[in-house]
């Protein structure tokens, strides 16, 4: 049976979903860069930072890969996102269950192990596997539909934002927007939503369904996506 949740918990669920998606999606994106760098080819890390609207204090590609991925003291790093993900999960133990939570804890350990490994690519694979296990565990073992969908909403908001930043193809974006709208339709928890933002996403989804591209700028689309939930 679904029961009401406090705004604090709903906010933690949403941000758990966002940070979990950030860890997974950015890591998957950067795994390809590791391979590129093996052949000495350049990577556009400055462009990457610009697209995410984050500072770029990195001195070279190696410095970027090290600090952006692993540096605990860098608030923009994936490692920090993993810490925030775990922090949000920890306060939801009784809602998501210790088993589901344990995948987040293990993902953080896996990141730390990858940071001292000679083949971090394998470590990233382990992190991504654990993120998938977390998602699967949410699907199978969380009975409360509202809790499940709130995490998914957070996850899809983040994915759409990253897909827009990374210039992912329309088809991938269409699927993500499709899912986000589906989850918002089935959200049993009462959450304050920006209806203008929702309308923008619905219209863009409709256009993408018809094979037409996004009619507004990616920046505006990203803004609509990120302001959808008032949490």
């Amino acid at each position: 049976m679904d029961y009401g949740l406090s705004i604090t918990k709903i906010s933690h669920l949403f941000w758990l979903g966002r940070y979990a998606a950030r860890v997974d999606a950015t890591l998957r994106y950067l795994i390809g860069w590791y391979d590129t760098m093996l052949d000495g080819k350049p990577i556009d890390y400055q462009g990457f930072c610009r697209s995410l609207d984050i500072p770029c204090p990195y001195t070279n590609p190696h410095n970027f890969m090290r600090r952006y991925i692993f540096d605990k003291k860098n608030p923009d790093s994936i490692r920090s996102a993993a810490e925030f993900m775990l922090g949000n999960g920890m306060v939801l133990r009784e809602n998501i269950g210790s088993n589901t939570l344990s995948y987040l804890q293990m993902a953080v350990y896996a990141m730390d192990n990858a940071s001292v490994s000679v083949n971090p690519g394998l470590g990233f694979q382990r992190v991504c596997d654990l993120m998938m296990a977390f998602t699967g565990s949410c699907d199978v073992y969380i009975d409360h539909l509202g809790i499940r969908n709130m995490i998914k909403c957070g996850s899809m908001v983040e994915r759409i934002s990253l897909y827009l930043s990374f210039g992912y193809p329309d088809e991938q974006l269409r699927k993500a927007v499709d899912e986000l709208i589906l989850y918002t339709d089935h959200l049993s928890l009462l959450v304050s939503m920006d209806l203008n933002a929702l309308s923008i996403l619905q219209i863009q989804k409709h256009l993408l369904d018809q094979g037409r591209g996004i009619t507004i700028s990616r920046y505006d689309m990203k803004h609509a996506d990120e302001s959808l939930f008032q949490l």
Partner: peptide, 24 residues
């Protein structure tokens, strides 16, 4: 099976303690 709550989630009204949810 109890709910874990912090002070911001709880309030007293008319001498009754409540858990503040996004609904009732």
């Amino acid at each position: 099976g109890a709910i874990l709550a912090e002070s911001a989630d709880l309030f007293v009204d008319q001498q009754v303690l409540y858990y503040r949810t996004s609904q009732d």
